[in-house]
Design a binder for these strands. Structure first.
Length: 631
DNA sequence: ATAGGGTTAG
């Protein structure tokens, strides 16, 4: 029957498939019918349409097959469509491979600006400067003319690869009248990221046209640099000058910056904003709003509240959201896990199942990390394995990492190591690092040494675990080996990541490092610290001296008595009214000693203190911590 | 066939 149609009609039919709701099904039925009647290879226009159908619906390998077999003399447009299909399916590596391979083979048509845009974008995604430069050389050598869009994408490639000299050169080469708002925002992104806030602000001020992207980039940069007040100024300025309001992407970008630094100042403003402009609608009373955007913004808010220590607000928001997707559920799961709330995480997971939400691999990372962070390794790996495969999820390295961490921290090191040997991957640095920390915790020097050796093959420059190993040697009485490790690090010029704590008081973020004396209120802070230590030791007889010895002599004196979180805590106590809850943010894990001190302070000074460290939240109240001393 | 900021984990 199909044989009676003309080639023109069939190709039109195929092209129309791309725009239908189920393009693939219709297109494939047509494809199958062509094959059945032996019709299609002889008609170039039909086979070309078939290739474009597969490219457009995002099936790159099907498109490649059709391209190879049926597109006899590809045009630039065909070739570009093929590359773009790979890029849109998040396969930037394949995109580059096909481009360079065909190019070296002389089997591709001369690329144009659009082709190069796709190639530069792929190199940018991979931060592959070598490929980017190579592509640029091909442009020059073959005399390809680049329009402003292609130049912007090349600039973005240089920016993402930290090659700011080349990026600026490209920017300068674009005629001033040609420069688009995208040229400017690409430059702004790079300058903010690589040259810092001050230089970025200069670029921002030079921008004649500012849009959502520019405003939110600038505001996010202020947030990430601990200047939420400045971010608010930018946002209010935006509202006054521009009719361009924030869209859901700008909102997510701002909120993720807030999540990074753990400050809620801007979050509150954004929350009010999205409710006001009805970007976030909790109940479905109208259908004239953007469902996807609302879910995305809602999930983003849940995430940021959880990461800023406001888990109750996050939970309330989650419950109020009438429409959710898998990301919303996963965000809530990992938020609860971050706070060590195992039972709640478990409950939410079963609620997910009863609501017929199909959990994905990230849901399981959430659930498993709740177990590992709380030390509640109730079931063994076999049960989890079954649970996962029952829901169609294949266990990945991350899942093993959670279990290994949980077993190790619970002192079940033999089981942990057995699991590592049994898993179908070679352990990565996350897994080995977790085992080393557990060995440290339980003084298993010999096993720690073995793991360390394996880790050094993968990551010879790792500083963190050298320090851990050195501490382990020190506490097992082998001061000599400990010093050797430290000295080796020092000789190679590696330094320990310094611990930094932040506390937000009255919309300003105050930063403290260990032994820090740079804060304007340093005398008051240290006076408070002394008072704190005095009250603690007289009230409890608590020994405030270190339990693990720090081999670096100059650090030993000050470090433990003035760890950054204690300074932040002292500052918080003198800067707020009695009873005000305090939120502290720390870049590395909290140490046992400080943990003990903060527990006592929460009781003696009647304060709720929330500390976010690199691993999880600790909520201190009346002398107890929500982690129940397990982390 | 084409550029910039974006939610979940490790």
């Amino acid at each position: 029957m199909i044989g009676s149609y003309s080639g023109k009609l069939l190709s039109a039919l195929l092209r129309s498939c791309v725009r239908r709701p189920w393009p693939l099904i219709h297109g494939q039925i047509l494809h199958a019918n062509f094959l059945k009647v032996g019709f299609f290879p002889s008609h170039p226009s039909v086979s070309n349409a078939l290739f474009h159908m597969y490219a457009a619906v995002g099936l790159p390998s099907e498109a490649l097959l059709a391209f190879r077999h049926h597109v006899t003399s590809p045009t630039t447009l065909d070739f570009t469509a093929l590359l773009s299909a790979y890029l849109r399916s998040s396969l930037p590596y394949e995109t580059l491979r096909i481009f360079f391979f065909s190019h070296s083979n002389n089997s591709c048509p001369l690329p144009d600006g659009v082709t190069m845009t796709v190639v530069f974008t792929a190199a940018a995604k991979l931060t592959d400067l070598t490929s980017g430069i190579l592509a640029h050389l091909i442009v020059v050598k073959r005399g390809v003319v680049l329009g402003v869009v292609a130049r912007n994408s090349a600039m973005d490639m240089y920016v993402k690869c930290a090659a700011m000299v080349d990026a600026r050169k490209m920017f300068d080469e674009i005629e001033e009248s040609e420069r688009s708002v995208v040229s400017w925002s690409v430059l702004l992104w790079g300058v903010l990221k690589w040259d810092g806030l001050i230089c970025g602000k200069e670029v921002f001020d030079k921008m004649a046209m500012k849009n959502q992207v520019a405003w939110s980039l600038m505001a996010s940069a202020y947030i990430e640099n601990g200047l939420p007040k400045k971010a608010m100024e930018i946002l209010t300025e935006m509202a006054g000058v521009s009719d361009d309001n924030l869209n859901h992407i700008s909102v997510c970008s701002l909120l993720s910056a807030c999540a990074l630094v753990g400050d809620v100042t801007v979050v509150r403003w954004v929350h009010a904003y999205v409710v006001k402009v009805r970007m976030l609608v909790l109940n479905q009373e109208h259908d004239d709003w953007d469902n996807d955007a609302s879910i995305m913004v809602g999930s983003s808010l849940i995430d940021v509240y959880a990461k800023c220590g406001r888990i109750e607000i996050a939970r309330r928001l989650f419950e109020k959201m009438a429409v959710k997707n898998i990301v919303t559920w996963n965000t809530m799961l990992s938020g609860l896990a971050l706070h060590g709330l195992v039972n709640e995480t478990e409950r939410l997971f079963s609620q997910m199942i009863t609501n017929q939400i199909v959990p994905d691999d990230i849901s399981f990372v959430g659930l498993l990390s709740a177990y590992s962070r709380s030390g509640h390794m109730k079931s063994d790996w076999k049960c989890f394995h079954k649970l996962m495969t029952d829901h169609g999820v294949t266990p990945k390295m991350e899942h093993y990492a959670c279990i290994v961490d949980g077993l190790g921290r619970a002192g079940r090191l033999v089981e942990a190591e057995a699991l590592v040997k049994e898993m179908p991957f070679r352990p990565n640095e996350v897994i080995l690092g977790s085992l080393i920390s557990s060995c440290c915790l339980y003084g298993k020097v010999e096993m720690g040494r073995r793991m360390m050796e394996e880790l050094l093959h993968l990551d010879p420059h790792n500083t963190e675990y050298h320090i851990l190993m050195s501490n382990m040697y020190a506490s097992s009485g082998n001061q000599c080996k400990a010093n050797n490790l430290r000295q080796g690090l020092k000789n190679r010029g590696f330094r320990k990541v310094p611990g930094v704590s932040y506390i937000s008081i009255d919309r300003c973020i105050h930063r403290f490092s260990a032994g820090d004396k740079s804060h304007p209120q340093t005398p008051e802070v240290y006076a408070m610290l002394d008072e704190m230590i005095f009250r603690l030791s007289s009230a409890t007889g608590y020994p405030t001296s270190p339990t693990t010895r720090d081999a670096e002599e100059e650090e030993r004196e000050e470090a433990l008595f003035s760890h950054s979180e204690r300074l932040a805590l002292a500052f918080g106590l003198i800067s707020t009214k009695p009873g005000t809850p305090l939120h502290i943010f720390k870049n590395i894990r909290i140490c046992r000693n400080c943990h003990a001190v903060i527990k006592l302070v929460s009781d003696l000074y009647q304060r709720e203190i929330t500390v976010r460290d690199r691993n999880r939240f600790h909520c201190f109240k009346l002398g107890f911590c929500s982690c129940l001393d397990y982390w």
